[in-house]
Design a protein around this nucleic acid. Structure first.
Length: 574
RNA sequence: GGACGGGUGGCCUAGCCUGGAUAUGGCGGCAGCCUCCUAAGCUGCAAGCCGAGGGUUCGAAUCCCUCCCCGUUCGCCA
């Protein structure tokens, strides 16, 4: 279905071309843009045609404006500063926007099912410790992208790749099975991930200082790589315990993943081995003196000291990226589009993976979405060193703050209800503050920013939402009406305009992975609604009551869709 | 040293891909607004050589070049 804006642009294009013909400049190049100034809806800058027409832009704009009569959706045309400005008929915009929102409801902003299967892999943190805020962008960006794509119409599957292979999980397993509980620091909470990470840290420390421990861990790793089923299942068991803790954290911020794929599977089912065989047979393959195999990727735009990408160790065992290749080949079978949400440290690895896929004759590539790490003012976070802020602690702090806020302003709510709302607000604040900034921008974690509840924040959107709920609750029964002749106030028009843009925001977020557009848009909706709320009486209005309530209803739908996309709760009161 | 990303009022941030009118929004600061639908709100004010310098263009935060600062990376780790 064509949106109001698409239809309007089409009419503007038609009118502009006709006008150019009339003034003897048919075929002139022009652009249509959204004005950065003024109240018009679309504009045609007349600067670029100025040279060939040998006329001042201002004069061209004026001539063009004079050559166009308002018709159809075009309500008025005017020339200003060398721009030809078009204003859309507000009545048409209002009626079509409201009708579409009421008709589409929770699907508003989307496009209907498109049948394209998308696999979004996100989070995939090593199961060696709790999720810390340095990595917290991953689940939040990934989950938001998945939700936006779902709304847009994709058939989305989210997936977590569990690294149950390699030195790190072996160290953890050794620690859990060999260090007595009294030798590790007491965990600050009982969740498995928090309880287990102490063993991981202790094992790392012991390994560094005690050659005997180092040898024991090396031995365990050798048995693991040799396929010792007892060792493999021990490691898997530890990883599973850790993962259960991670899942709990993810659930608490409304992130649920559809599929968990274990890395060890690609060793067990032989697909990693088959990748090795195919790569070895390729023209780019080489072998070190000691037997390690590599691809030389100098022809694939990989630059640096070393263009080699090693895919087996000297002993022939596979490496992480080798197994990741098998994993991607598997994902390609299951989805039409494969998206990986990755930390910026994976950039080279991802590029090597794409080159290797090409060498394997695979025509498809994963689409990578990279984000920069969140660091602390004193430097980067490290699970091993214990220099971290855990996501669980951030959530607790945010919920506690939200609880205090509610208790200070509400006396009519039950304890249970206040706790429930506090959780919705606290979690919303965290998700919003993280997804707000474009992924590639580095972030420095500060408690006061992370816990911001005012202005450009999650609770700001939720608060506007509760206002819509409260008004509709108090209004009781009413007859919905999109009669545009009764919604002519500037605040009403501004609100309708903002609501009408939701589809294009979702399009950009979903198609280009620009998820930070969603919170920015949500803030605009909430802010425009708050201005309307402060200036236009609704419940006490008479002649326009139904139309205003209908507009409030539409705002509620859009805000709820935005909140859903952001994985934030929509509280009826707060 | 190479590669990739970031640098926008005191602080955080949008815009950059696709050049265009007075550079977006927030925090903090200052001054106002609750006899009206929840003040987690609204209104107003102060605050900017868009990292620096060149170039292209009628026009540059946006494109190109050089340089500076920050982050990531250049493992037979994951």
């Amino acid at each position: 279905m064509m949106s109001v804006h698409d239809d309007f642009e089409k009419e503007v294009r038609g009118a502009t071309e006709a006008a150019l013909g009339k003034i003897g400049a048919a075929g002139a190049e022009y652009r249509i843009e959204i004005p950065s100034a003024g109240n018009a809806d679309l504009a045609v800058p007349c600067f670029q045609m100025s040279k060939s027409m040998r006329k001042a832009p201002k004069a061209i704009a004026e001539e063009l404006a004079a050559a166009i009569e308002p018709a159809g959706m075009i309500a008025s045309i005017d020339a200003l500063n060398g721009y030809l400005n078009f204003t859309m008929d507000p009545e048409i915009l209002t009626r079509r926007t409201i009708d579409e929102i009421l008709e589409s409801g929770s699907c508003y902003g989307g496009h209907g099912k498109n049948g394209i299967r998308v696999n979004v892999e996100h989070t995939s943190t090593n199961p060696t410790g709790p999720i810390h805020v340095g990595r917290a962008r991953n689940p939040i960006i990934g989950d938001t992208l998945a939700r936006a794509m779902k709304l847009r119409g994709y058939d989305v599957t989210t997936e977590y790749y569990v690294n149950d292979v390699g030195k790190q999980v072996v160290i953890l397993t050794w620690g859990v099975n060999n260090i007595p509980p009294e030798d590790v620091e007491k965990a600050d909470r009982e969740k498995a991930d928090h309880a287990l990470v102490a063993y991981y840290r202790a094992a790392n420390r012991m390994m560094e200082s005690d050659p005997e421990v180092q040898e024991k861990i090396a031995d365990l790793l050798r048995r693991f790589e040799a396929g010792d089923s007892k060792v493999i299942s021990e490691v898997r068991k530890t990883a599973q315990r850790m993962l259960d803790g991670l899942k709990e954290t993810l659930e608490s911020i409304n992130v649920g993943l559809d599929v968990y794929t274990w890395e060890s599977r690609f060793i067990a089912d032989g697909t990693a081995r088959s990748v090795v065989e195919q790569l070895t047979a390729s023209d780019y393959a080489g072998k070190e003196d000691d037997g390690a195999c590599y691809l030389d990727l100098k022809d694939f735009g990989i630059q640096g000291k070393n263009t080699k990408f090693t895919f087996t160790r000297a002993d022939g065992t596979t490496l992480y990226t080798t197994r990741d290749l098998a994993y991607h080949l598997d994902k390609f079978k299951r989805a039409d589009r494969v998206i990986d949400v990755l930390g910026e440290d994976q950039k080279l690895g991802s590029k090597q993976l794409c080159s290797a896929l090409e060498i394997l004759g695979c025509e498809r590539k994963p689409e990578a979405l990279f984000y920069s790490f969140v660091s602390l003012p004193e430097g980067k976070m490290s699970t091993r060193k214990g220099v971290v802020v855990y996501l669980d602690d951030l959530i607790d702090e945010a919920v506690t703050r939200a609880y205090e806020e509610i208790r200070s302003r509400r006396t009519d709510l039950s304890e249970e209800r206040m706790r429930e709302i506090a959780s919705i607000i606290g979690v919303g604040a965290i998700r919003y503050n993280i997804v707000r900034v474009q992924p590639e921008k580095q972030m420095i974690f500060k408690w006061e920013d992370a816990l911001n509840f005012d202005g450009n924040s999650g609770p700001f959107l939720q608060y506007a939402y509760t206002r819509t709920c409260s008004m509709l609750r108090k209004a009781g029964e009413f007859e919905p009406s999109a009669d545009p002749s009764k919604l002519t106030d500037e605040y009403e028009t501004a609100l309708v305009k903002v609501l009408s843009r939701f589809g294009s925001v979702i399009e950009e977020a979903a198609e280009e992975g620009r998820v930070h557009m969603i919170p920015a848009y949500g803030h605009e909706v909430a802010s425009t609604f708050n201005q309307f709320y402060a200036s236009v009486p609704v419940l006490s209005s008479d002649r326009e009551r139904n139309e205003r309530l209908t507009l409030v209803m539409c705002t509620r739908i859009v805000l709820r869709n935005v909140l859903t996309c952001l994985g934030m709760g929509a509280p009826e009161e707060m």
